[in-house]
C-alpha cells in the first residue's frame, strides 16, 4: 500500500465522515412526540378493523360465514371501528377528513332505522364504504339487506369506549373487556 493510495483513501473518507456526521451538528430535535406513535397505532388498528369488516363481508358472500355469525361479527367490528375513530379524534381532532366522514357514515347508518334515510346520508354511506376499501358491490348489498340489520344495530346503540363491544343500556361495565363504562 503506497502513501498515495492512503492519501486518496483519506480524501474519500473525509467527505463521507462529514456527510454522516453532519446531522449531529444541527440543532437538536426530537424524532417524534409521544402521542404520535399512539396515533399511528390507532390508525393502523382502524385500518385492520376496516379490512376485517371487508373480509367477513366477503367471507359471507362466498359462503364461509353463515348469516347469524356474520351479523354478530359485523356488529362487533363496526363497534370497534367507531370506538377507534372516537379515540383517534380525541388525540388528533380532524386527523384526516376521511375518518370524520366514516364516523358520520357509520353513525348515519345506525340511525337509519329511527329516521328515514336522507339522500345525503345515503351518499355518505356509499362514499365511506369506498373509503373502507369495500366494493360498491357490498354497499349495494348492505343497503338492500336494509331493515333487519339496522334494527339489530339500533338495539344496542352504544359501544364500549375501550374495546368497541356493544353495550346494553344500563350496563356499568363492558361485558367483553370489563372496562368501566362512561356515563353517556
Amino acid at each position: 500500500m503506497t502513501w498515495l493510495s492512503l492519501a486518496i483513501g483519506l480524501i474519500i473518507a473525509l467527505p463521507v465522515i462529514a456527510y454522516v456526521a453532519r446531522p449531529l451538528f444541527t440543532p437538536a430535535r426530537l424524532l417524534y412526540a409521544t402521542d404520535d406513535s399512539r396515533l399511528g397505532d390507532l390508525l393502523a388498528r382502524k385500518d385492520t378493523v376496516l379490512s376485517n369488516i371487508k373480509e367477513i363481508e366477503f367471507d359471507h358472500q362466498t359462503g364461509k360465514l353463515n348469516t347469524e355469525d356474520y351479523a354478530q361479527y359485523n356488529q362487533r367490528l363496526r363497534g370497534q371501528a367507531l370506538s377507534l375513530l372516537k379515540r383517534i379524534d380525541q388525540i388528533a381532532p380532524g386527523a384526516g377528513d376521511l375518518d370524520t366522514q366514516l364516523e358520520a357514515a357509520i353513525a348515519a347508518r345506525r340511525k337509519v332505522a329511527a329516521a328515514p334515510v336522507s339522500d345525503a346520508a345515503a351518499a355518505t354511506a356509499a362514499s365511506v364504504t369506498e373509503i373502507a376499501g369495500t366494493d360498491d358491490a357490498t354497499t349495494k348489498q348492505a343497503t338492500e339487506a336494509g331493515g333487519a340489520k339496522e334494527v339489530v344495530m339500533q338495539r344496542s346503540a352504544s359501544f364500549c369506549h375501550h374495546c368497541g363491544a356493544p353495550v346494553e343500556p344500563g350496563d356499568r361495565f363492558c361485558r367483553a373487556c370489563g372496562t368501566r363504562l362512561r356515563e353517556e
Binding site: 366522514q101 346520508a121 355518505t124 362514499s127
Partner: peptide
C-alpha cells in the same frame, strides 16, 4: 367522495 355538506359529523 367528499362528504356532502350538512351531514352531522358527530354522532
Amino acid at each position: 367522495v367528499p362528504a356532502p355538506a350538512g351531514v352531522p359529523v358527530r354522532a
